[in-house]
Design a protein around this nucleic acid. Structure first.
Length: 575
RNA sequence: GCGCCCGUAGCUCAGCUGGAUAGAGCAACGGACUUCUAAUCCGUAGGUCCCGUGUUCGAAUCACGGCGGGCGUGCCA
């Protein structure tokens, strides 16, 4: 796939620099950057190379800029560059360059997005809910961000393995087992398995805080489970089965799939040998009865050891995370492992990655943290106590609100269609609300913010897509390539440029794992299209103009569908 | 104590590797539907980018120091 406009201009610019009298004075390895223009009044692309070079060459930046601009041959790509401000070099694309690009996009399923240079096997660890506890809004971030990053990485040609590392082992099972045996309501379990498990968990969790005896009994149940007691093992398996069914329902609604569900319990047998090994290698040592790894070489963690075995012999989540890394590197052949996990776990992952380093495991580990969702009082939502809003309720409420709007605007649509549209829009709205903001930003949970349907939201983008489809529906035919493109109106050129820049946007998302940059691009594309829509009639136009506008509609539709797809958001033909 | 993150319009937030007059949405106000979906578009108004110092031709962005908030920090995950 040919390079993006930014790359093409950059190549020409650097060639130009080497042809100039001061070429030999350029700093070693200097490469001129070309960026999208901040403001369209200055052109389409800009470079600040002259200002950077001014210091090195001890010359006036505007003088250097004009030397460069004079020597720059834009060919079929750009007009003669202009100098502005303190020494910016501004480039404006020729309409022919835009048309050529559009012709290429029409032919290319991937819409000119190049595959990543080096294909990697990436294991993505996200969502990871706990068994027998409901998914609440706190899980939404990991789940939606992780899924989107997977889709983008796959689109760029990587092998991506989505692994749902569910919490299916641990202290909560002591309480659940005791509850199952003592306070379980069989009928309720039939009717609403998850609901009943949650009720039992909460009930026992609440009581054991007060009653010391109960706390011990729960602990006994846990010990029996870990020792392989048949009855407890059977109950445990049943709980996981029921929980998975409930989780699948939500993932189905969210249109999210995992390649593996390798929960914590999968690694149980690996934990004891792993600790042994770490001791033998001198990486771990005994301290106050527990087995720890110390990091004296790292200033920040020098006083923060990682515990991998408790003094009572039990293992911790650091231990199972280490065993998980072994499996992912050795069995799944991971080159990279991505953890989409809340920011509070920064230290934990610093430690885990440091231990992996000590063991010589040099996969590319990425901790991809996100900020907290706060309650009305600005406090973090906690799973343990209180009643955080359940994810399923958020999704259902969102679909319901979307349905009301569909029903109001299109009362004549068949019931089934209205429901489908409401689902696409409702789920899309929740996902877009999450993905359109920077992942580290904390936010207060608010129904109206999360489920908004106006402004910079999923329905706005989907509406732009629907409009592209409405044209072809009205025309009664699909887009037929092969015509002659002529871009004359500003609205057409603006749109063409935006479409071309999809290829500059998608790969950049993975630089810092920011799906919100893609969301922002799609919003701008939709806005640009809506403006084009107001300014340029399509079906009333004729000849090349009509063909050009049809092509712009077709491509806008494809980029929106593809881009929204990368965010995990579906589209609909009507709304 | 130490570490990490955050502080931008009335509200919710963009603004990655430093670039030109700091941008959106919501809310407010004023316009545009005999037209391919008005879930749209156009316009008005709204700012000590927490404070200070430094680096730089240039700082919301980088460094250092404060202030405010959140989270984490040896036997939960």
């Amino acid at each position: 796939m040919p390079n993006t406009f930014a790359e093409q201009i950059s190549t020409k610019l650097n060639e130009t620099l080497l042809s100039l009298p001061f070429a030999s004075d350029l700093p070693e390895g200097f490469v001129a950057q070309v960026d999208q223009a901040q403001n369209r009044q200055f052109g389409d692309y800009q470079s600040n190379a002259a200002m950077i070079l001014a210091k090195q060459l001890k010359k006036n930046p505007r003088e250097i800029a004009s030397t460069i601009a004079d020597a720059f041959d834009g060919g079929a790509l750009t007009d003669k560059p202009e100098i502005a401000g303190p020494g910016f070099i501004n480039f404006r694309l020729k309409p022919e360059a835009l048309s050529t690009r559009l012709d290429l996009l029409i032919e290319d399923e991937k819409l000119a997005v190049s595959a990543a240079g080096e294909k990697k096997t990436i294991v993505a660890d996200f969502s990871a809910p706990n068994v027998a506890k409901p998914m609440h809004v706190g899980h939404i971030r990991s789940t939606i961000i992780g899924d989107s990053l997977c889709r983008i990485a796959r689109f760029l040609g990587h092998d991506v393995i989505a692994d749902n590392h569910i919490g299916d082992w641990g202290t909560q099972f002591g309480m659940i087992l005791w509850g199952w045996k003592n306070v379980l309501n069989e009928e309720a379990l039939e009717e609403d398995p998850i609901g009943e498990l949650v009720r039992v968990y909460k009930l026992v969790n609440g009581r054991q805080k007060e009653e010391e005896g109960l706390r011990d009994e729960c602990k006994q149940e846990l010990v029996k489970l870990q020792a392989g007691d048949e009855e407890n093992l059977a109950i445990w398996k049943k709980c996981i089965e029921l929980s998975k069914q409930g989780l699948q329902k939500i993932y189905g609604l969210l249109d999210i799939e995992f390649d593996y569900w390798l929960g914590e319990s999968f690694y149980n047998d690996a934990l004891a040998p792993l600790v042994e090994e770490l001791m033998k290698e001198g990486i771990a040592e005994e301290s106050d009865g527990a087995i720890c790894v110390f990091f004296p070489e790292n200033e920040k963690m020098a006083d923060k050891p990682a515990l991998i075995r408790k003094s009572d012999g039990g293992f911790l989540y650091a231990t199972s995370d280490l065993a998980t890394i072994d499996y992912r590197i050795n069995e799944l052949k991971a080159d990279a492992i991505w953890y989409v996990v809340g920011a509070p776990q920064q230290l934990h992952f610093d430690q885990i990655f440091a231990i992996a380093g000590k063991r010589g495991q040099n996969a590319n580990f990425e901790f991809i943290p996100f900020g907290s969702i706060l309650d009305k009082n600005g406090k973090m939502l906690k799973t343990r106590d209180g009643d955080p809003v359940q994810l399923a309720d958020v999704l259902n409420e969102s679909i319901e609100r979307a349905y009301k709007v569909v029903d109001e605007k299109n009362p004549d649509f068949p019931e089934e269609e209205k429901k489908q549209i409401a689902e696409v829009i409702g789920i899309g709205a929740v996902k877009y609300a999450e993905l359109s903001q920077f992942r580290m930003t904390d936010y207060k949970f608010d129904w109206d913010t999360m489920l908004a349907l106006k402004g910079n939201t999923a329905p706005y983008l989907i509406n732009a897509y629907v409009r592209t489809r409405a044209i072809f529906r009205k025309m009664g035919d699909d887009f037929q390539p092969g015509g002659n493109l002529v871009l004359t109106e500003d609205a057409e050129k603006d749109l063409a440029l935006k479409l071309a820049q999809f290829a500059e946007t998608v790969p950049a998302v993975l630089n810092d794992f920011r799906p919100n940059t893609l969301a922002a691009y799609l919003y701008e594309l939709a806005t640009t299209y809506h403006r084009f829509w107001e300014a340029c009639p399509v079906l009333r136009a004729e000849g090349d103009v009509r063909y050009t506008r049809l092509a712009l509609c077709e491509l806008t539709g494809r980029v929106l569908r593809c881009g929204l797809g990368l965010l995990g958001i579906r589209t609909t033909e009507k709304m």
